[in-house]
């Protein structure tokens, strides 16, 4: 099998196992619903400003992803299949496969949060669709990239649940600050060129994180 075929087989295997148990998806969906409901309870009748909503959007995305994205490695440890995977596939294949799966999951997650936000918050109106689309894409991929390597690191530790957001947050701060800024631009209806600075940061973050993880993954994965 070629490397691409192997990687794809791994993605398909993870997708199939996810569709059977729906563990990560259920966790993500329920987390999104509960956190958005909590925000609604806290705001009551108040109309939040677009700036606040843009920030809260990524708060929900961050904490939801912290509840589901670690599954990809933690499940291998729990089911005791990590060793088999180490024997079958090379670390690079495992990394890329897991990253692709998490990217897909994160894109779905942010899409779901967006739809929910559009429904429940009248103040959340995407005025610049192009800025929002690029932010959605680059933000989700960057988030998935950092979340994947941290998930691989914490899969071996014994207090994974709490450790995951603790380790991810400092690494994700540059991304979160930037996506919040460009989401504000998207809601304010600014022209596409205004957000180029943010896009550059998001793109370089994605490259640096993915490149670094790709090179370091071998050390995390192999004993």
């Amino acid at each position: 099998m070629s490397t691409i075929a192997r990687t794809w087989a791994l993605v398909v295997k993870d997708a199939r196992s996810e569709l059977r148990t729906r563990y990560a998806m259920n966790a993500l969906v329920m987390f999104v619903i509960t956190s958005v409901a909590t925000i609604l309870f806290a705001m009551r009748e108040d109309q939040a400003s677009p700036e606040l909503l843009a920030g809260m959007y990524w708060v929900v995305v961050f904490f939801s992803s912290m509840s589901g994205l670690s599954r990809i490695f933690v499940s291998e440890e729990e089911k005791g299949t990590a060793l088999a995977l180490q024997l079958i596939a090379s670390p690079k294949v495992v990394y890329v496969g897991k990253l692709l799966f998490n990217c897909g999951l994160t894109l779905l997650l942010t899409l779901a949060v967006t739809v929910l936000y559009l429904i429940v918050f009248p103040g959340f109106v995407v005025a610049s669709f192009d800025i929002f689309a690029v932010t959605w894409l680059l933000g989700s991929l960057g988030l998935a990239s950092a979340a994947t390597i941290i998930a691989a690191i914490i899969a071996r530790a014994n207090t994974r649940g709490t450790l995951y957001p603790v380790l991810s947050f400092p690494v994700l701060i540059p991304l979160l600050m930037t996506v919040m800024r460009s989401t504000i631009r998207a809601l304010a209806g600014e022209s596409f060129e205004n957000a180029f600075g943010e896009f550059q940061v998001l793109f370089s973050y994605l490259l640096v994180m993915t490149g670094g993880s790709y090179l370091l993954f071998e050390h995390v994965w192999k004993d």
């Binding site: 950092a146 390597i149 941290i150 690191i153 071996r156 530790a157 380790l167 400092p170 690494v171 701060i173 540059p174 940061v201 973050y205 640096v208 994180m209 670094g212 993880s213 370091l216 050390h219 995390v220 004993d223």
Partner: peptide, 20 residues
Amino acid sequence: EARARLSAVYAIIAGLTVPF
């Protein structure tokens, strides 16, 4: 061994954000 290995990787990953 795992402590040394994983914390080293984490330090490097965290260090990647420093230029930002």
